[in-house]
Amino acid sequence: MMAYMNPGPHYSVNALALSGPSVDLMHQAVPYPSAPRKQRRERTTFTRSQLEELEALFAKTQYPDVYAREEVALKINLPESRVQVWFKNRRAKCRQQRQQQKQQQQPPGGQAKARPAKRKAGTSPRPSTDVCPDPLGISDSYSPPLPGPSGSPTTAVATVSIWSPASESPLPEAQRAGLVASGPSLTSAPYAMTYAPASAFCSSPSAYGSPSSYFSGLDPYLSPMVPQLGGPALSPLSGPSVGPSLAQSPTSLSGQSYGAYSPVDSLEFKDPTGTWKFTYNPMDPLDYKDQSAWKFQIL
């Protein structure tokens, strides 16, 4: 009977010793046993002879290597770790002494450095960015050149030099007046198309007034536009458009034309069986010896 009264063996659950049927240790109110408190290391007290050895090595170098620390530790009968900690504390003490010396050398008012006064946003004049500046400075420094007289040679050079070769001289006033084509001369031969040399188009003023001019072949195509416009036809070669000034309004060009419109200028042929003959000019830059190549039959 006494065997049943004795408590059973101890069981360990999660490293906790349980005594038989008792489960009081598993209750929430019972805390787990805490780790033992780490003991504080005792402070090391250095003797005068030990301090002399350490100070002598510190005077040589503030960062001794492990071999120098072990050698000193053997002399003063201390572990190497204590020597390492002593050098660490000695360097910190040396830095603190240097900072105190710097503070003593500075004057009393030198510690508080005078800061520059901050400028207020409204006091300083700042350039306004509302208006974009002129990058080319046209509004201040540029002045347009004065327009020359209508009959000045410089204007003629600016007008005619675009179309004339570089080897030719500017046309005088008398020749510029001949550039304007007359109405009857352009409409006299509506079906004849003559190819003149390129030099005649640039230099010869008579080429624009003769039936064999460069633009005589364009007349049949330009004249039928007159009834559609409801007024006189516009002429690209009329009046002052080739003269001194090219800047004319469309209203000033509306009254200039080749001449009176005639039914002869239409595109319809009077004789459907007729042929169109292209007159060959020996001055043509295209060297075609066979003139029969310039004739064709309209079917």
Rank of each mutant, 00 (worst) to 15 (best):
V264M: 04
A35M: 10
Q97E: 09
Q105M: 05
S252W: 14
C202F: 13
R126F: 01
A189R: 10
L267T: 01
G122C: 07
D130K: 11
F87G: 13
P108D: 05
S188D: 02
P205L: 14
L179S: 01
L146G: 06
K93R: 07
S254M: 10
S212P: 11
L246A: 03
A198D: 02
P33D: 04
R95D: 11
Y67A: 04
R115I: 01
D24S: 08
Q62H: 06
V160H: 00
T47S: 06
P36H: 09
R176M: 05
K38F: 14
D265Q: 15
Q175E: 03
R69W: 15
D134V: 07
A15G: 08
P205I: 11
C132E: 09
P211N: 02
K88N: 14
S167H: 04
I76N: 15
E268F: 14
A260H: 07
T154Q: 03
Y214P: 01
A158P: 01
A73C: 14
L218P: 00
G259W: 13
K102I: 01
P149S: 07
V242E: 01
L74A: 09
P220K: 13
I162M: 00
Y11D: 00
P272N: 04
P9I: 14
L179R: 03
D284I: 14
L51R: 07
L54T: 13
V264P: 02
S34L: 09
M5R: 03
H27C: 12
A192G: 01
S212H: 11
S81T: 10
K102E: 02
P227Q: 08
A114L: 10
A35H: 07
S139Y: 05
P7D: 00
P108H: 06
P31D: 06
S12A: 09
A15P: 04
R98H: 05
S141W: 01
S292Q: 06
S257P: 03
S213L: 13
K93N: 15
R119A: 02
T279N: 00
Y280H: 00
P33S: 08
A59R: 10
I298R: 00
G110R: 08
Y32K: 03
T251G: 05
T275L: 06
H27Q: 02
I76R: 11
D130S: 08
S19N: 04
L16D: 00
M283F: 14
V66A: 07
S164V: 15
S12I: 14
P7I: 09
Y280D: 00
S213C: 07
P170D: 04
P116I: 03
A3R: 03
G231M: 08
A59N: 09
R91Q: 14
S292T: 04
S169P: 06
P165G: 01
D140F: 13
R48Y: 08
Y11S: 00
L179W: 08
S167E: 04
G151C: 05
Q111V: 10
P125A: 08
K277Y: 12
N281H: 14
S252H: 06
I76C: 04
N6K: 07
L218Y: 03
M5L: 13
A121P: 09
L171R: 12
A92G: 12
P232S: 01
S124C: 06
T123E: 03
T279A: 01
L237N: 04
A15V: 13
P227D: 01
Y142N: 06
K38V: 11
F58V: 12
T273F: 10
S206V: 07
A200T: 04
A174D: 02
P36M: 11
G20R: 10
T159A: 06
L18C: 01
Y63A: 12
D65K: 15
P64V: 13
S238H: 08
T129R: 09
D130A: 10
K295A: 05
A189T: 03
P9V: 10
S34V: 06
Q96V: 06
W86S: 14
S223A: 06
T61H: 06
Y191D: 00
T154S: 07
P272F: 12
Q248D: 06
P9F: 09
A207D: 01
V83C: 14
T154R: 09
P211F: 12
D290T: 15
L246W: 11
T273L: 08
P7A: 02
C202I: 12
L74C: 05
V131F: 03
V30M: 02
P211A: 05
Q97T: 07
L222S: 00
G259S: 11
S241W: 15
C202E: 01
A117G: 09
P244M: 10
M225G: 00
S206Q: 08
L253R: 10
E168R: 11
R115F: 01
Q256W: 15
S241M: 10
N6M: 13
R37Q: 04
Q104C: 08
Y261Q: 02
T275G: 02
S262H: 05
K38A: 12
L51C: 12
F46M: 14
P211Y: 10
M2R: 04
Y195H: 00
T155P: 03
A198M: 04
G137Y: 14
L253F: 07
P107G: 08
P282C: 11
A293E: 01
Q105V: 05
R37E: 06
R48H: 09
S124H: 07
S188Y: 13
P7G: 04
Q106L: 15
W294H: 00
R40L: 15
P125D: 08
T273H: 06
D265H: 13
A247Y: 11
Q111E: 08
F58N: 14
A260C: 11
G8C: 12
D134F: 06
Y4C: 03
A68H: 10
K118D: 02
G243Q: 06
Y191L: 07
G137Q: 07
S257V: 10
T159R: 05
Y258A: 05
Q104M: 07
D24P: 15
S257L: 12
P190G: 07
Q291S: 08
P244A: 08
S128N: 06
G243T: 03
I138L: 08
Y32E: 01
S210N: 03
T47K: 06
L16Q: 00
V160R: 05
S150E: 06
Q105H: 09
E168L: 12
S206M: 10
D290S: 13
G239Q: 06
K102P: 07
K113A: 01
S212V: 10
Q28I: 14
P165C: 12
L51G: 10
E42V: 07
Y63T: 13
V72C: 03
Y32R: 10
E268C: 11
T194R: 11
A29S: 07
P272Y: 08
G231P: 05
H10F: 11
P147Q: 09
T159Y: 13
S254K: 06
S128K: 05
S143F: 12
R37F: 08
L186E: 01
V23T: 02
H10L: 15
R82T: 12
A158C: 12
L57Y: 13
G151E: 07
S167I: 08
Q106M: 08
Q50D: 14
A156H: 03
P172G: 05
V157M: 04
P31W: 13
G255R: 12
V131H: 05
E71C: 08
T279C: 05
P244S: 04
Y288D: 02
P133W: 09
P236N: 06
S254V: 10
P165W: 12
R82C: 08
L299P: 00
S188T: 07
F296N: 00
A200V: 11
S185H: 05
V13N: 00
Y4H: 01
V66W: 11
S152I: 07
A17Y: 14
R37P: 07
T251S: 07
A207Y: 14
D130M: 04
Y280E: 00
A15W: 15
